[in-house]
Design a binder for these strands. Structure first.
Length: 613
DNA sequence: CAGAGTCCCAA
RNA sequence: AUAUUGGGACUCUG
């Protein structure tokens, strides 16, 4: 495992280490080679890697700068120690209610630095966060939070009074001093890290070439933002849970008696209520109105005075679902079904309208451009929407309503550009079986349907094809396995490449000359993913003998992209680039496949075709 | 099985 | 050009 640290830091092990002891010196953890490598890879995978910061930098700035990992370590160290944070570039995205939400896009250097810090702070706090905080956490999703809400509002648990606290501009009102206090309380003693984050909150932003100062708030869009927002409310989470869910744990020792918890609870002055938080969306589910009122006032007071946040009292409320009131949470609308004597969920009107208008927009585009890509986009839209909402009890009803609202347009568009496959006509049955199988595989049953529409040999999924998935927010989902969030289960052991070999490649990758960071990483990934098997022989190439070759040379416009790289031996590489490149054919394995490959490489490098007949 | 890409949803 | 975190689905290459 130690060797693995040279390449990427092992988060699973780090989580275990920090469980025992949090290091005082977190700076060295942040700027270790394995940590910086992992941080860079995460940035390379992020969808916004090409968006420009206020200083005009993005991921390509690093790739074009001819830097290696050690250079990046030094840059990160400089920025943390000297508290260097560029102002963020401000843009806006429109929200559902029509208003705009400001985004702050940092420079690539800030992104890298923050990712390095995040990879260290996150496992520390993952050891402490409460299980009822569901937002922004590894291996936890909105459905886990919804499962808990469903469980406690349903017939047997009877927590029908919902305290719903809405915070105004939560990210924007984070206070730097309180942030520092909460970090320290969580065990962060490194003054460099504390000071850097203090500075980050006050970094300011640039809009239309003007600089604006900020006193509070983590930029929305910064890498540390989501984690910091969880840390800020962490001790409040604990306070809430000690009142009821964990009341006998520490806070009220004299009543500690697990056998008759309910009776002893009455002797205390504690409030009953179950805690569910997703980022700034807080709920407390209470069994009685009296407790709900006490919760509302106590919690609002704590947030406003203790944490200097702004509670939006117009939007915050106490809801009694047994009296027919509804509430929306994470896209689901909860209501109480008297018929079934349990809480149920459905799509609210606004969201239904949004899905309808989005569907119409996509259908019109599909009619205009009936390309394969647009069909795939439509199917992805249908599947994505279904996958999110299919846990609602009223899923089928809600989506058949949507279906009827778009049906006219849908049928019209399909008649223009698609062909209907009728399952009752048996002539083409063989040909249709593959499509039928595919649709069934997606979880959409074809059994009992008249048929389906086909564009470019691809079946078109329909919004009305909806099957409720009762396990998605079932009671088993509310509790999340927190033994180790970075443990994704046993991966099948891949024989062929040892950690020693990886370590060797990583070490040399810092000294192979002027190449991009992307190339340095891909060079290792390529060898690892192909088990070191050479392109021209099909046999394993020794690491010391491994050369990573650009198929289309960079001088001819070839890139460092993964699919432009192949594994060669040092000899093969030398001969390929020399004048005697014909000899390459004798070096490769003399089968049709490898001869073809050798010819291909020569053609790409030298621009000549060789006839080997 | 692993690498890189596309798309969807929530906050 | 529109970020971040988390979840989900699919495609390609060997």
């Amino acid at each position: 495992m130690a060797l693995n640290n040279i390449y990427y830091v092992d988060m699973k092990q780090r989580f275990i280490d920090y469980q025992k002891e949090i290091p005082i010196d977190l700076l060295s953890e942040c700027i270790s080679e394995g940590n910086v490598n992992l941080a860079f890879r995460k940035l390379s995978e992020s969808s916004g890697k090409y968006s420009l910061g206020a200083d005009g930098t993005n991921i390509d700035t690093i790739n074009d700068a001819n830097l290696n990992t050690l250079d990046l370590c030094e840059i990160v160290r400089e920025r943390i120690i000297n508290k260097i944070v560029n102002p963020v570039r401000r843009t806006y995205i429109s929200k559902e209610n029509g208003s705009k939400r400001p985004l702050g896009i940092g420079s690539i250097w800030d992104k890298l630095t923050q990712m390095c810090i995040k990879l260290v702070l996150e496992p520390i706090f993952e050891n402490q966060f409460v299980p009822s905080s569901y937002g922004f956490r590894e291996q936890v999703s909105t459905h886990n939070a919804l499962a808990k809400v469903k469980f406690f509002t349903n017939g047997t648990a009877k927590h029908h009074f919902i305290v719903n606290i809405d915070l105004k501009d939560y990210f924007g009102t984070l206070d730097p001093k309180i942030m520092r206090r909460e970090l320290y309380a969580g065990g962060i003693k490194d003054k460099y890290i504390l000071n850097y984050i203090f500075r980050l909150i006050r970094c300011g932003y640039i809009e239309e070439d003007m600089f604006y100062h900020t006193d509070t708030g983590a930029p929305q869009g910064s890498i540390l933002g989501p984690l910091l927002s969880n840390i800020y409310l962490h001790r409040t989470d604990i306070w809430v849970r000690e009142q009821y869910e964990n009341w006998h744990d520490k806070s009220v020792k004299k009543f500690h008696n697990v056998d008759n918890k309910g009776q002893n609870f009455k002797k205390t002055n504690l409030k009953r209520g179950v805690h569910v938080r997703y980022a700034d969306d807080m709920l407390i589910l209470c069994p009685s109105l009296e407790h709900a009122k006490r919760w509302y006032h106590a919690l609002a007071r704590k947030l406003e005075i203790g944490l200097k946040l702004t509670v939006n009292h117009e939007k915050s409320s106490i809801i009694d679902i047994s009296k027919g009131e509804t509430f929306r949470y994470l896209g689901y609308e909860f209501y109480y079904s008297k018929k079934h004597r349990t809480s149920s969920q459905q799509l609210d009107k606004k969201r239904m309208a949004k899905i309808v208008s989005e569907a119409k927009r996509r259908l019109r585009e599909l009619r205009k451009y009936p390309k394969l890509q647009n069909v795939l986009n439509w199917n992805a839209f249908v599947r994505g929407t279904h996958n999110y909402f299919k846990g609602m009890t009223n899923f089928s009803i809600s989506f058949s309503k949507i279906h009827w609202r778009i049906n006219r347009l849908f049928r019209h568009v399909m008649k223009c550009i698609a062909k209907f496959t009728d399952t009752k006509k048996s002539e083409e049955e063989k040909h249709n079986n593959a499509q039928r199988k595919w649709i069934d595989m997606q979880g959409y049953k074809t059994w009992g349907r008249n048929g389906w529409w086909v564009i470019a040999r691809t079946p078109v999924l329909e919004l009305g094809w909806a099957n409720w998935d009762k396990t998605l927010i079932g009671h088993l989902r509310q509790k999340v396995n927190r033994t180790n969030p970075y443990d994704y289960g046993e991966k099948a052991h891949k024989p062929g490449v040892s950690l020693n070999e990886i370590a060797y490649l990583v070490n040399t990758s810092n000294y192979i000359g002027s190449y991009s960071m992307r190339y340095r990483n891909y060079r290792v990934s390529l060898y690892s993913s192909l088990h070191g098997v050479g392109y021209l022989t099909g046999e394993k190439v020794d690491v010391a003998n491994y050369h990573c070759h650009h198929v289309l040379p960079k001088s001819k416009g070839g890139s460092d992209a993964f699919n432009n790289l192949v594994i060669l031996t040092a000899d093969e590489h030398r001969i390929l680039h020399s004048k005697n490149y014909i000899q390459l054919l004798s070096l490769c394995k003399q089968s049709k496949k490898y001869i073809k490959r050798a010819n291909f490489l020569i053609e790409q490098v030298h621009g000549v075709m060789i006839c080997n007949k």
